[in-house]
Design a protein around this nucleic acid. Structure first.
Length: 613
RNA sequence: GCCGGUGUAGCUCAGUGGUAGAGCACUCGAUUCGUAAUCGAGCGGUCAGGGGUUCAAAUCCCCUCACCGGCUCCA
């Protein structure tokens, strides 16, 4: 028995050791194709989703089918079912699917006229399909049959026979709610997410990657690395621990330095302002439900700022501005407060109180394009330095409901798109998704499991200059309305940190690490030397601690590794004699003996140049 | 906000109607140790909160809150 548990323990340790190493994606043994890049996968996933829908209707005859497309890592299918699908139901559905696969049903494509399609749908009583049919503008209508047992409207393509699906390469993953047509006012459907691959090996790899991604979850790492926590008393609000706050402050210091170099000034505006100001800005009318407010003893209504812009505009408006003052690039690290719906909160990614690295650029219209280009250059350069080479850029253009003339919008959209094309950037256009007061650029980053999050943004604002009636004096002595660019590069510091943690699996670059160096005394006799060396490092601006546990070296190395401290320095008799440190880094392991002076040199250089230690 | 799920010690989790458990962490003692876990003892729980069913509830039912997976939304 002792034998057995000892074995278990050691194998456990092996697993942990291997998985906890900094190089997370070392073993890309199997490359996984994406649906969008593989015709085979498209067919597999289309057909598997049909097989699933057939299985669902067999087990749940009251369930009605709606849509079921492939997605990048699998497929889903939405059903309108009076009873929700449980975990057990999912298992039963999968079992039924395997039966269908084993029946080796041929997948038959049939072309019919619109009337015929309609007649058949009515015959089986599937109202959602009728709506889908109405949306199909072309004729003939294609139907895909699974043998003579089930059919669905579908554009295809499909496999030729259900037996081509490998039953060991499919999985039903999760059930979720989804609105019909993505419209919250319409019926809520049950969505089953599944996945299907060419081989069982691919499925295993897919599952492995999902598990790997789970370990990088910033919520998990935030807890493990003692960075922050959440409490029931303050849903959607971050309690920043000393370590997390250090990271936060490092990012602000970095951004402040970059902005200073780029010709920004920094200001600060009130967190709580009278309701009337928010009425002027228009936020009260549009976002009252999502604002935190407070009523004072004398019955004055104040709101916690949900945006920094009214404060910035107020600053611009204070005192007369000349064309000589422009452009004014006015930055503010402002904390904004939004009462986000409970269901949308998500770790650091979506919170109710967050800090924006906000800035408002007031400039003459003729300078707008140049300023936009500078912002895009800056944001991408900063992302690159922080390890994000791949950034999705989206341009949201004029919506239906908008202020301003078409001519003005042409100008504003051109300012943004020309900034992108001047820099040779590819981007996606989100038609009609802009704000009512101006178009918008979004810089989107991805989290560990592939969810997209808008981080940086650049907007042109027509609304606030008008509403607050701001002006500057032109060369000719006239009054003119400045253009107002609204930009945030990290966007939300909270969200950006969440992304950053996941990007690095918690192994932050040396210059950002909350604790950069930990000294590990081999025994109590060497503690004094360690403290002295730490004091020297600390006065050189290195974030350093001395392990105080009194545990054995193996244990304290393990703890430092688990806490992802980038540099460990072992201190024992040898080191005291030679005034040196035995360095070990998380990235490269044992570096051997280095003098205290050289260690300081190395660490300060890495901080200064933002390079690895 | 909507659909579904989850909530047990600081952390990870076990416990399906009958005296609340384990490992780690923490505290104390022994050990003075050289690169991923030294040994022993101890401390630690309104089982998310409230209500109900029952002789008896962590366990069954209802409500609330928070979190998780989606959907909608995101100035």
């Amino acid at each position: 028995m002792i034998h057995c548990s000892a074995l278990l323990l050691s194998s456990d340790r092996m697993v942990q050791q291997v998985s906890d190493r900094p190089t997370a994606d070392h073993e890309a043994k199997i490359s996984l194709p994406k649906t969008s890049e593989s015709e085979t996968l498209k067919k597999i996933r289309h057909t598997t989703s049909h097989v699933m829908a057939m299985a669902v209707q067999k087990l749940f005859p009251k369930a009605q089918v709606t849509i079921g497309p492939w997605i990048e890592n699998g497929f889903y299918y939405d059903f309108d079912s009076p009873e929700p699908f449980s975990e057990e139901a999912l298992k039963a559905i999968k079992k039924e699917m395997i039966k269908i696969i084993n029946k080796k049903l041929p997948v038959i494509r049939e072309e019919v006229s619109r009337e015929e399609a309609k007649r058949r749908i009515e015959a089986i009583g599937e109202p959602y399909k009728l709506e889908i049919l109405d949306d199909i503008k072309t004729e003939p209508i294609t139907l895909y049959h699974l043998g003579d047992q089930w059919w669905d409207l579908c554009a295809g393509p499909h496999l030729e026979n259900t037996s081509e699906i490998n039953p060991k390469a499919i999985e039903l993953e999760t059930v979720a709610g989804a609105y019909w047509r993505g419209d919250a006012t319409k019926a809520q459907l049950q969505r089953i997410y599944g996945t299907a691959w060419e081989s069982p090996e691919q499925l295993t790899e897919h599952k492995r990657r999902k598990e790997e991604a789970l370990k990088r979850d910033h919520r998990k790492l935030g807890n493990q690395l003692d960075l922050f926590h959440f409490q029931e008393a303050a849903p959607g609000s971050v309690f920043w621990h000393a370590r997390g706050w250090t990271l936060f402050q490092q990012l602000i210091a970095y951004m402040r330095m970059r902005q200073e170099r780029a010709g920004y000034i920094e200001v600060n505006t009130p967190d709580v302002m009278d309701r009337s100001l928010w009425e002027t800005s228009g936020h009260w009318q549009n976002y009252r439900d999502h604002m935190f407010t407070t009523v004072t003893e004398d019955d004055r209504v104040f709101a916690l700022k949900p945006m920094n812009c009214p404060g910035a505009v107020s600053l611009f408006k204070h005192g007369l501005k000349s064309y000589r003052d422009l452009p004014i690039r006015m930055a503010e690290f402002g904390k904004v407060h939004r009462y986000e719906p409970s269901g949308t909160l998500h770790g650091l990614m979506r919170v109710r109180h967050f800090t924006q690295d906000d800035a408002h650029i007031f400039c003459a219209q003729e300078d707008m394009a140049r300023e936009c280009e500078e912002v895009v250059k800056l944001v991408l350069d900063i992302y690159k330095e922080l390890g994000f080479a791949e950034v999705s850029i989206k341009l949201s253009t004029r919506p239906e409901n908008r202020i301003g003339t078409d001519q003005t919008w042409d100008l504003l959209e051109a300012a943004l798109s020309s900034a992108l094309s001047a820099l040779n950037l590819t981007y996606q256009i989100n038609e009609g998704e802009g704000a009512f007061y101006g178009p918008k650029l979004e810089f989107v980053l991805h989290d560990a499991i592939g969810r997209d999050w808008q981080c940086g943004t650049l907007q042109v604002d027509l609304n606030l200059p008008e509403r607050f009636d701001i002006e500057y004096v032109t060369k000719e002595g006239d009054r003119s309305r400045p253009v107002m660019l609204h930009r945030a590069l990290f966007g939300s510091l909270e969200r950006f940190i969440g992304i950053l943690i996941e990007q690095y699996s918690g192994d932050l670059p040396f210059w950002l690490a909350p604790e950069q160096v930990r000294l590990l005394p081999v025994g109590d006799d060497f503690r004094a030397f360690a403290e002295a060396a730490a004091a020297q490092l600390r006065s050189a601006g290195v974030r350093v601690t001395v392990d105080q546990s009194g545990d054995r070296l193996g244990k304290i190395v393990r703890n430092a590794e688990k806490e992802k401290i980038p540099v460990m320095a072992v201190v024992g008799e040898k080191e005291v004699e030679t005034n040196s440190l035995s360095l070990r880094t998380r990235a490269d392991g044992d570096l051997g003996s280095v003098t205290v002076a050289d260690t300081i040199e190395r660490a300060t250089a890495a901080n200064r140049d933002r390079t690895t230690f």
